[in-house]
Design a protein around this nucleic acid. Structure first.
Lengths: 321, 321
DNA sequence: GTAGTTCATCGCTATTACCGATAAAGGAGC
DNA sequence: GCTCCTTTATCGGTAATAGCGATGAACTAC
């Protein structure tokens, strides 16, 4: 029943394992090296096991028992910190770290909103983000390395919860002087003679091929790209058309050619952007800053994207005028 | 970053909330009441909030903030204790509490094995058990109140893992002097004229009705019972036959009538006993004593049941001799 | 060898945890 | 009102602990 260590000891032990030496841990914790040394002595005495191999001039590294304790200590410290935060949050201010994982091509649409408006609303939440592939995102969520993720919906493991926050219709991007550019919309039949620029990233590629009801072998596919600006640039140059869902506020490519987005009518062609987070687990619900970000995204993301659409519409109008 | 409390403070705070008074907590922790008082003072000072309403002669109860901290504190203490245990377990001896949830009618087949043989192998594991309905079991597993469960397979929520540990063929229990008693096996067709004693507990009832390809309205059903001994007694008295899967080592009913088990041949009639436990979660795998019990049950349960079958076979043989 | 690490140890101080004893507050019963 | 009981609060004192700075010892790299 008696607990064989104090939180402070775990904190110090964790710092030593992280930094690889007692001295570095002392610097990290803004404390004296001698305190670290004696704290480790005391911890090893209390648990009755050697936890660290300490070598002068070489630092320190954990024994097998030490590695085991380090894993557990991380969990204990994490929950303790979370408990402390929850008490502080009673003033209404959310706080604590929150890591966003975002699918690469989605990042420029998602992050400005979150790092700007969400952060302004919750200034004490320490935001960070990583750009990831879908599989990394799911792995990060389940391991706890990522708190909330944004991606197109693919396979999602059972322990991850998700919500659609945006439904996007596909469109055909073509040069402004293309014969189809004035049409209010096009169908698959209109594209049989067109060269295709394929944005080759995993979900985009899958979506495009599904919309075209074809495969990668299709001889219409002129080029395969892996970024939106390049895709748009190739289209602007007249090398083909692209099937996309990503909004873009500009009617020009980055290298200055005018392009036009014409809606593509196709069965079940809409694509869903989802927000994903770790399901509540036994005795552990997600911190409030996570659920808060989920509802924030649910309520704001779609209008945020609508604004981008509107910006493009205005630019196009002014272009014509 | 600085942790606003010590493990000891959380331990004391938890005891106060659990017991409802500082004095009772002091007794519970084998410490002085004054220590408890000052520990709470210090804790409240450090987190900057009143956590307890303390009234002389009335004990103490948590404020809203206190209730919140108590929930979190429970988790922190739980993980800390688990961490301590893992270090101790490096001597090879598993230890710590383990609560078994077992479906009622399964209990006499499961618990003797676990409380006897498993406990003997792991003397430092503190076993306890509860007899539950299927739904309670699933709720207990997901909340963490139950560590491993034994039940017939029904609906299982996504966060619960399970494994079949026993497959049982159904049999017809009939009085020893029944005309069918000498048959090596019977089929549904043989039972069209028989009165049925229905063991009415949820999974048993469902199994029996499925085997008979009928419903509760079937007019062959003479009596509905809710325990195995009673079911056997009514069969022994000649009031009907029963379709069962539960093994019983005795060829007699508790009130002394001889009964016979005759295998029932029916498509997909076998019933599965499952062991269930909470799936590994982010940053948290189940303690080793739990996985150990799972493998113990997987390897031993079916032979344990086979022994019961064998006992009955021997008794029957000696009866004839 | 020398310089630069790193961990270990010592003496010291301030803080903390804890104890026992006693006081103070409030409820229950008369 | 009064007494009895339970509860929390407070006080003085002691032992344990955390932390510091300074110094020494071990080892690497050059």
């Amino acid at each position: 029943m008696a607990l064989p260590f104090t939180l402070r000891q775990l904190e110090i032990f964790d710092a030593v394992v992280r930094t690889g030496s007692l001295s570095a841990a002392a610097r990290d914790l803004h404390t004296a090296q001698s305190s670290v040394s004696s704290a480790i002595d005391e911890l090893e005495k209390q648990v009755g096991q050697r936890l660290l191999v300490r070598r002068k001039a070489q630092g320190a590294w954990p024994t097998a028992a030490g590695r085991q304790l380090h894993r557990e200590a991380g969990i204990v410290l994490h929950t303790a910190q979370e408990a402390g935060r929850i008490l502080q949050e009673r003033d209404g201010q959310l706080r604590g770290p929150l890591t966003i994982g975002v699918y690469q091509t989605l990042a420029p649409y998602v992050l400005p909103l979150l790092l700007g408006d969400f952060a302004a609303e919750h200034p004490l939440v320490e935001l960070s983000f990583v750009e990831v592939q879908h599989a990394e995102l799911m792995a990060g969520l389940t391991s706890g390395a990522i708190d909330v993720g944004f991606t197109y919906l693919h396979e999602v493991p059972a322990e991850v919860d998700h919500q659609p926050i945006l439904e996007r219709p596909p469109y055909v991007l073509m040069p402004a002087d293309h014969p189809l550019a004035d049409r209010p919309s096009v169908t698959l039949a209109d594209l049989t003679a067109e060269k295709i620029i394929l944005l080759g990233d995993a979900p985009s590629k899958a979506n495009t091929l599904r919309d075209l009801a074809t495969t990668e072998d299709d001889e219409r596919i002129a080029w395969v790209t892996s970024s939106l600006p390049l895709t748009r640039a190739l289209v602007g140059k007249g090398l083909g058309v692209a099937i996309l869902v990503q909004p873009d506020a500009s009617p020009w490519t980055v290298d200055g050619h005018p392009v036009v987005e014409v809606p593509l009518h196709v069965q079940d062609g809409n694509v869903f952007v989802h927000i994903a987070w770790l399901k509540p687990q036994a005795r552990r619900r997600p911190p409030r800053r996570i659920t808060e970000m989920v509802t924030f995204a649910e309520t704001n993301f779609s209008s945020h994207i609508a604004r981008i659409d509107e910006e493009r519409r205005l630019r196009k109008a002014s272009d014509i005028a």
